[in-house]
Simulated scan of single mutants.
Amino acid sequence: MSVTIDIAGLPPERIVFAPSPLAELGATLHVLAEPGHHPGAHGWATATNAALKPDLADRLCEADFLWRTAFSDILMGFAGLRDASVQPAATLAEDLDLLDKLDDEQFVTAALEFTCATGYAEQATLSPLSDPVVRKRTLELAAARGPQQRRFTERLLEDPPTVRAWVRRLFEDCEQAFFADTWHRVRGQLAADARAKTDLLRRRGLAATLEAVSPALSTDEHGSVIEVDKLTSAWTTAVSPAVGAGVTFIPSVHQWPHLSVLHRYGWRPVVHYPVAGREVLSGPLSVEQFTLRMEALSHPMRMRMCRSLARGPYTTSELADLNAVSSPEISRHLAVLKKAGLITSRRRGRYVQYQLDVQVVARLGSDFLETVLR
């Protein structure tokens, strides 16, 4: 399984390495929301969360689905603009200006990635802003995610400009509260990494550059595709004349163990990769329990389920729809994972949601954790 980016005929100068303040802010917000994904950042996350003013902390909770379960494409809004020369900006304000250039349709479908009926990699033919059937389905999916996401979705569908202004103000307040200092600390490292990768691409070519970015990246002998080794299958193109040819690689200090790929239909692809070293995970585990857990993970379906459950809570029916299998089959796999102590469950109204216990999985090894969170 992999995400394939078609780059056949793409000029080398259209392969761009550039840091992004907005993308890095999104990575820090994910660390604050899911410190279990980033064991080495517990100290920073704890201190930063403790220093947040209550009003800002509450507002972050209202919109945390934009960065908690997955990395929302609005955090790389430049890729949706119909101008291939547009790349991430030097400041957060300038990155937010680029985000403001997206029309309401683009912003809404990107922000509601998990609550819009249209497939992520498919062309949107109907919009929740104008089609009542799609709108109803979007609200139903949002409700299954919880009351906060439903309220946010209702507000966004009712008045996109007001919510967009609210989101921008939220990011600006984050900059004032903690991100200005964070960006000042990491921007030099990110700029240096981008320059080094650009120079490597010029001197040694694409294959060597991709290997330096991540062992999960590769190309074919003709340099016509970029393959991203992930527990999912998808395809996108970097040579669409409709949106402009190009692919952007964004380095991040706060991204590990995630390797994210923006492959939304109608947007230029983006690879968001970590530059920091792997974090060390340790802790004793009995041979019996280790064997039980490894046997639970030996089935490919359970591996795919782990990838989803690592990003957020899912119900049995949601997992069944996502994997195109029956609910009873998903229930059997969930039972095996639960017996091995790899997942947790909680009841939300009439729904039972399951989620991967990332800290438990981390004890199996950083390679496995990196793979399911890639």
Rank of each mutant, 00 (worst) to 15 (best):
A180M: 12
I15W: 05
H37P: 01
S252G: 15
F65H: 10
V225W: 06
A180C: 12
T371Q: 13
A121I: 02
F65G: 05
P313A: 08
R68I: 01
Y265I: 05
R168A: 07
F178D: 11
E288F: 02
D173C: 07
W44S: 04
P269Y: 02
Q289M: 07
K338W: 05
I250S: 10
G266N: 07
R137M: 15
K338C: 07
T316N: 02
A27L: 14
V253W: 10
A324N: 14
A324I: 10
V275W: 05
R68W: 00
A117Q: 04
D97Y: 07
E227T: 12
F249L: 11
G77T: 03
G43C: 02
L217S: 04
V3P: 06
E140F: 11
L231H: 11
D181N: 11
A27N: 15
E221W: 12
A194Q: 03
A124M: 15
T28H: 14
A180K: 15
V133N: 09
V352G: 01
M76N: 04
L32W: 07
N323K: 11
A192R: 10
L262W: 00
G246Q: 06
Q359I: 06
R346E: 13
L297I: 07
R293L: 03
R14N: 11
I15L: 07
E94A: 15
Y273G: 04
A110P: 00
T125H: 10
S331V: 09
E24P: 02
A208Y: 00
Q289D: 13
Q355V: 07
H333C: 09
P147S: 10
D6Q: 09
A165I: 02
V352Y: 04
A79T: 07
L334S: 04
L52E: 00
V108Q: 02
P12F: 04
K339N: 12
H37T: 06
R203V: 08
A143P: 02
G26A: 12
D103V: 05
E140C: 08
R150H: 08
H42V: 09
F178N: 12
P160G: 02
T316S: 12
Q353C: 10
G266T: 08
P128S: 01
A340E: 08
P19A: 02
L231W: 11
G119F: 00
E113M: 09
A177L: 09
A45D: 00
A84T: 03
P160R: 01
P160E: 01
R204V: 06
T28P: 01
D64A: 03
A208C: 00
D181K: 12
V133W: 08
T291N: 11
S366D: 14
V3D: 06
S130Q: 10
R293V: 01
F71R: 03
L297F: 06
V239M: 08
V271L: 12
A238Y: 05
R332Q: 10
H38S: 12
E13V: 08
R169Y: 07
G205I: 05
A143G: 10
L373Y: 04
L92P: 06
A324G: 12
E122I: 01
R278L: 10
L262K: 02
P132Y: 04
G246P: 03
C306W: 01
A143E: 15
A47S: 14
R14F: 03
A234M: 03
V108G: 04
A207S: 14
Q355R: 13
L342P: 03
L201C: 05
